[in-house]
Design a binder for these strands. Structure first.
Lengths: 142, 142
DNA sequence: GCTGGCGTTGACGTCGGCGTCAAGGTCTAC
DNA sequence: GTAGACCTTGACGCCGACGTCAACGCCAGC
């Protein structure tokens, strides 16, 4: 199988495959004419890479999984190094999620404060009382 | 006030300030010798920028807030455009958090499956999908 | 033999938010 | 008059994961 077919079957691009090879992540054999030659095992490796990428892993983090498969293990995560990467990624995701949630709270607080201030100012300007019942409509509006 | 003092008072660097000026975000007046000259209002603008950045806003997203202050409003979020940015950012954060949580679940599932497999118990599962969330400037890998 | 569709390597561009020189100008203190 | 602490502009570097040329080679079909 040549590079174009492999790329298509894995749902990626030839450029990506050459990049992986450049990283030593997915080395390719060569046909007589210099074309890269891949087989089903390479497709397996590539799918491992893509699955992990989709789950938020960087390319370097996929390396232990790929090497694990290349070493003949049944799964990319059959090796200790892969499990270690899982653990690190879980911790990373947890921290990341916590940070985002904290940011979300801050933004939501500021937003609501600003909306109240706006309604307050509008009320002062128009000389009327602020509406008390309709904050939730602000949201769905967009 | 010159650039070094402003940077220090806002907890940033002179490089960042020149960059903001380059973006037209924080224009500076010039002293006779060509040095940038800032005042307390600039410090206010800069603090607005930094606060938003810390909350995960990109520099372009801070622009409406800065312009709002420059237009003489009491707060950076006194203007409709700023509120709109708040809304967009909240939606963005929500989506991002959801994706990361989904990714976390998948990784956790894979991890546990792999551990069970290692311990000799057989089980299988699979999954797919895209997470990948880019956010604030300061998340370091661990 | 010629077109068209594959493949090859190499190299530069992208995005954000600056860091880090380099080469020089300005101002103050001693 | 000179050190050194500030300032100026300009330009390249960085991180990841490729995209996008450019210029060429290989091979099948007509």
């Amino acid at each position: 199988m040549r590079i174009g077919e492999l790329a298509e079957r894995a749902g990626t691009t030839t450029r990506a495959l050459r990049y992986y090879e450049q990283l030593g992540l997915l080395p390719a054999r060569r046909a007589g004419n210099g074309y890269r030659a891949y087989d089903e095992r390479d497709l397996r490796l590539l799918r491992q890479i893509r699955t992990l990428q989709d789950a938020g892993f960087g390319l370097e983090e996929t390396r232990p999984f790929v090497e694990c498969l290349q070493a003949g293990h049944p799964e990319g995560d059959s090796c200790p190094a892969s499990l270690e990467v899982y653990r690190r990624k879980l911790a990373e995701l947890d921290e990341c999620i916590a940070r985002l949630q904290e940011a979300r709270e801050r933004v939501a607080g500021q937003f609501e404060r600003a909306v109240r201030a706006r309604d307050g100012l509008a009320a002062e300007a128009s000389g009327q009382r602020p509406p008390q019942c309709g904050l939730s409509t602000e949201w769905v509006e967009e």
